[in-house]
Design a protein around this nucleic acid. Sequence first.
DNA 1: ATTATATATTGACGTTTGTCAATTTGATAA
DNA 2: TTATCAAATTGACAAACGTCAATATATAAT
Lengths: 98, 98
Amino acid sequence: MDSITFAKAMADDTRQQIMRLLCCQWICVSNIVDQTGVSQPTVSHHLGILREAELVNTRREGKQVFYTLNQDAIVVCCGILMQAFAPEKVTSEEQTAT
Amino acid sequence: MDSITFAKAMADDTRQQIMRLLCCQWICVSNIVDQTGVSQPTVSHHLGILREAELVNTRREGKQVFYTLNQDAIVVCCGILMQAFAPEKVTSEEQTAT
DNA sequence: ATTATATATTGACGTTTGTCAATTTGATAA
DNA sequence: TTATCAAATTGACAAACGTCAATATATAAT
């Protein structure tokens, strides 16, 4: 996953709203629809983008599909951003200083 | 600065290209134009977005305007993202564990 | 097999975004 | 002041994006 895919996936209000809901818990699509107030197709569309970016995990349970946020991916991507754009602030911390 | 402004500012290829150039050094606009191969108005447009998001610092020197990346802002914004979307992975590190 | 429910996909539409050419603004030099 | 160079702004246009209604797909229940 590259830093642009990540940034694009994060770059929408509705998507961040969904991500906040999915943080630390599994929720099914219809619940997301209820809690966000946007239409079911729109929610599915956003979930597709998050899935594509591997920012969410999925589990089917009968007729329902549950989603949760992939927190590890968030940390990794933020790390990549910081390495790329703030190396001076983050590079070392443990410098082996030969 | 909110996490959406940040993500939107990062969510473009040309803009990340410019940000990489501005990382750890001051460059003037015409140099950015030369090194990116996009037109001067386009570069100015992207710099405007980065300025708006406070991701760059600016300094005028005669007729030229120099830009550099605001690395501290990057770190802060990534921190906000991680706090919001990966709290379990980042909250503690030093848990006072009563 | 038919029906019912949950989610994904398609198609259409308006908005936002990235790009460039042309122009304007700002700053120095003559 | 006038001329020159650097950067910002404006206007136009195509491409990408977010949204919803309608439809299709998948799963379970009758």
